[in-house]
Design a protein around this nucleic acid. Structure first.
Length: 494
RNA sequence: GGCCCCAUCGUCUAACGGUUAGGACACCAGGUUUUCAUCCUGGAAAUAGGGGUUCGAUUCCCCUUGGGGUCACCA
């Protein structure tokens, strides 16, 4: 049976690169009707972050990536690694090293000065047996190192094909640290073997250490799993995706108002494609079509332009009621929302379209639905519906549409005049007719009236349409807003 | 620096020896919506360079160049 795993170390948050690795490992397991397990690699006591393991699990679950087994914690399996390490010493594949950090540092400095690859000089391997025994009996603090044989190491990788390394280029890797914890290299091999992992799916940054793992499998007499090293996610400058150049935590994108469906869909396509021109895939559909053979070799720049577009698509496809329910808790966290008429809304009232308030709210949401790329944008565009006073800005002026202060003032004055005689504000068609007359009588272009009008009503670059806004707000509020916009235009002219 | 990996429009990618090198995002232009957005139509935009192999190379091989990863008692 196919079995994959995701094995993050709990250092704080789930990296988007990690999310993609987890996704691919999960999708592959599901596609092959196998199992996906979660293992927490917490062997570095110095880097442990409180609560990180729980957060990691929450985030994975949020995205719908559920594991069939685990989470296993490596810190709870210490004894196991120790036993295998001892076994490796007995079979001559590993040895104890008593070198101090200072000696190692000096050695490396010298090597770097001489421009040779920094590598352990096997000092402790070469010392006489009696001396080794004496050191051991003294109980001197030590590590256990893998004795790298001088031979070629070859293996197959699903995405990269046949790969060759040579032992002479490899360092005698530390397997057990002096604190009794294993290093990643020992722990990953032992666990992948004991947990029956058939496919090791991980990032390309692990490629250089894979030969060491192969050596361990061989020394322990175990069959090799299949390896698949995934291409890296990149910064715009093509370096490995890093915190420095943007948000890298999966939660950051949730916070920014991206839907999990969009994030999953987007990230699945960074390094993989289905071979067709279809591009919208749910997690479920991905489970049916994913294959490691179609994984890209080259790294992919994490460019969120496409994520924006994709998120907009998912947002537009949502039912307005669902979107409204999704937006409500976010609105409740803002400072202004509590002061509005809508502060008493609840999920239930929206869901059942209980009263006028709920219905209005849903209407607001559907007005802006086609104009938003993220939930955070939705919050911006909802403001003009909810609050009374807008704080205007130079948004009124639009070069391309030839709207300057004078034009805006003229347009708004005429609109106010025309609308003052309008009784029925519910009827958008009637409102439209009124404004058309205004445009004609002024002899202006459509945009020269429509732009300042919509800005006066919404104060947003993108927002619900002018007629939608007027009909939702009603006469009194519409005129009040237009007048205050006119005031602003007059007052700020100088 | 040693070792390793990679290389198609700005970005994500398709084309597993024969295509006018396709799609998507972003960008630009036009249309619909008498506005912004949505939506529709169109446009500009790529096989890093040089050698082979072949009747024919984006595709296979080699070299160069470029980029990246990795070389810890971190994962």
């Amino acid at each position: 049976m196919i079995k994959t795993r995701f094995a993050p170390s709990p250092t704080g948050y789930l990296h988007v690169g990690g999310l993609r690795t987890a996704l691919y490992a999960y999708l592959f397991a599901k596609k092959e009707k196998g199992k996906f397990i979660l293992r927490i690699e917490d062997t570095d006591q110095k880097r442990l972050v409180e609560g990180a393991a729980e957060k990691l699990q929450d985030t994975l679950r949020y995205f719908g990536i559920e594991w069939d087994e685990g989470p296993y914690f490596q810190s709870e399996r210490k004894e196991k690694y120790r036993q295998y390490a001892e076994k490796l010493i007995e079979s001559g594949h590993a040895y104890r090293c008593y070198c101090s950090a200072e000696r190692l540092q000096d050695m490396r400095t010298l090597q770097q000065k001489n421009k040779v690859a920094p590598k352990y000089d096997r000092h402790c391997y070469k010392i006489p047996e009696e001396e080794k025994e004496a050191l051991f009996n003294q109980g001197k603090s030590h590590v256990i190192r893998l004795l790298i044989p001088n031979e070629t190491i070859s293996f197959q990788d699903i995405v990269r094909g046949n790969l060759n390394f040579h032992g002479k280029d490899l360092d005698d890797q530390i397997l057990m640290k002096s604190d009794g914890y294993p290093t990643y290299h020992l722990a990953v091999v032992v666990d992948d073997y004991e947990m029956g992992i058939t496919h090791v799916i991980r990032g390309e940054e692990w490629l250089p250490s894979t030969p060491k793992h192969i050596l361990l499998y061989r020394a322990l007499g175990w069959d090799l799993p299949t390896f698949a090293h995934l291409p890296l996610l990149l910064n715009p400058d093509k370096s490995k995706l890093s915190k420095r150049q943007g948000d890298v935590a999966a939660e950051d994108y949730i916070k920014k108002g991206y839907l999990k469906e969009a994030i999953i869909n987007f990230i699945a396509f960074l390094g993989w494609n289905p071979g067709s021109e279809e591009e919208f895939f749910t997690l479920k559909k991905l489970q049916e079509v994913f294959s490691l053979e179609r994984v890209q070799k080259a790294g992919a720049v994490f460019n969120t332009d496409k994520l924006d577009w994709m998120n907009g698509h998912y947002l537009r496809k949502m039912h307005a009621v669902d979107l409204a329910i999704m937006l409500l808790p976010k609105l409740k966290k803002t400072v202004y929302f509590a002061k509005t008429d809508y502060s008493t809304l609840t999920d239930e009232s929206i869901k059942s379209c209980e009263d006028e308030k709920a219905n209005n709210f849903i209407k607001f949401v559907s007005c802006i639905q086609s104009r938003i790329k993220t939930l955070n944008e939705a919050m911006e565009q909802l403001r003009p519906f909810l609050i009374d006073e807008l704080e205007y800005s130079d948004l009124f002026f639009h070069k391309k549409m030839k709207v300057d202060r004078a034009i805006a003032i003229m347009a708004l004055e005429a609109c106010i005049k025309a609308l003052e005689h309008q009784k029925d504000f519910k009827n958008e068609t009637a409102l439209k007719e009124k404004i058309v007359t205004v445009i004609k009588s002024l002899g202006m272009k459509n945009g020269q009236v429509m732009w300042p009008l919509r800005v006066a009503l919404s104060n947003e670059e993108k927002s619900a349409g002018a007629f939608e806004l007027m009909s939702v707000m009603g006469k009194e509020k519409t005129l009040k807003r237009l007048k205050s916009a006119l005031n602003w235009l007059n007052e700020t002219s100088s």
